[in-house]
Design a protein around this nucleic acid. Structure first.
Lengths: 193, 193
DNA sequence: CAAGTGTTATTACCAGGTTATAAGTTCTAT
DNA sequence: ATAGAACTTATAACCTGGTAATAACACTTG
């Protein structure tokens, strides 16, 4: 007779359980797997699985960090040059919160956010909203890369500003975007066509 | 002489501290605010702020909820429905960190990020990158709004997926986007035209 | 001065662990 | 079968980050 469950089986079952509910205590796991709490602890040690609180904290912190990374300052990326109404440059350092864990490639919306921020920053007004954007991603950007975004106002029609953004990593184009932003600082019409 | 800080001030300072780092213990808070731990506890009680573990657990659980189907890929917004390769829905709660301080309007790149996340999530593959996107913002979205993004795969050509995203607040369209995402899980050609 | 308010300290208790140590239990090889 | 190793369980001491209750101190204010 083999034991109702080998250690290998039990451990992979444990991983499965935690995969679809990381908020189980050792007692719940012990109960589920029909072994003692002590065994669960040993298994966690062996599998290098941290305690419940640590798991919760880590999950919370990682998702929180991503939102923070995106929400942070007024401009996504560091503004290094700005000529209002004309052009500007910003640099974004790619941190681990911004990439896909699996392949360390920067998630597209950060490039968009950097460009969008630049487009908005270029307009000298209190209330500026993005109306539309047409963007294209040329090359993947990786963890620790520095993305240089150059934005230029190409045309102004009334309260609409047309802004072109080109982003580079190592002098290679990785992203291009055409943004239309609208200055709605005093006029009534908001974002209507 | 009033005390160096009134209770009101201290409590709002406490809220500020926790707003930008919810993972502070009572001792760290006490240290920061130059009062005793007991006072911090009283303040938390008064402000109805739960203990650290509860805060972490809540943050973790909220973003983790229902994402099981996705196997750990994070999405901007909470995924509430997902039919791989077909369509899905996510909801984004607009918090104060996502808006322009001046007018409480949601910054455009969050709508883009929500849409982009959905587009990527819809493809059942390990490595999915955004190739291009064409987006339009119809109405401003405000603090505390709930943005419902509905994404649909409209066409698949080889490893390219065309995804339409429509986002709503109170049944009104606020954002539309056409995303082209590429599955590069095994093929060599990466993002080249 | 007394009273009330705000703050601090102290004690007992709890969950969900860690770490170490010892005592079963089961498998395996001789 | 039986000793030894491997595995499992139990036990006790300790830790963090709290809750809850109670008491004492500090300060203003009538």
């Amino acid at each position: 007779m083999e034991p109702r469950q080998s250690r290998q089986e039990r451990r992979s079952a444990l991983q499965d359980l935690l995969r679809d509910d990381p908020f189980l205590t050792d007692w719940q796991l012990a109960d589920e797997l029909k072994v003692s709490v002590a065994t669960i602890r040993l298994d966690r040690m062996a599998l290098d699985i941290p305690e419940l609180r640590e798991r919760a904290r880590t999950i919370a912190a990682s998702t929180y960090a991503e939102v923070r990374a995106l929400q942070g300052e007024e401009v996504v990326g560091e503004l290094i040059e700005l000529n209002l109404g004309q052009n500007g440059t910003s640099v974004l350092r790619v941190t681990d919160q911004m990439v896909f864990a699996r392949n360390q490639i920067l998630r597209g919306h950060f490039l968009f956010a950097q460009g969008n921020s630049m487009a908005v920053a270029l307009v000298d007004s209190d209330i500026v909203l993005t109306k539309s954007a047409d963007v294209r991603f040329y090359q993947p950007v990786y963890l620790d890369d520095r993305v240089v975004a150059k934005a230029t106002v190409t045309s102004i029609q009334g309260n609409r500003y047309y802004v072109s953004v080109n982003s580079f990593v190592h002098d290679e184009v990785v992203f291009r975007g055409e943004f239309v932003v609208v200055d709605v600082s005093d006029k009534g019409g908001v974002l209507h066509d």
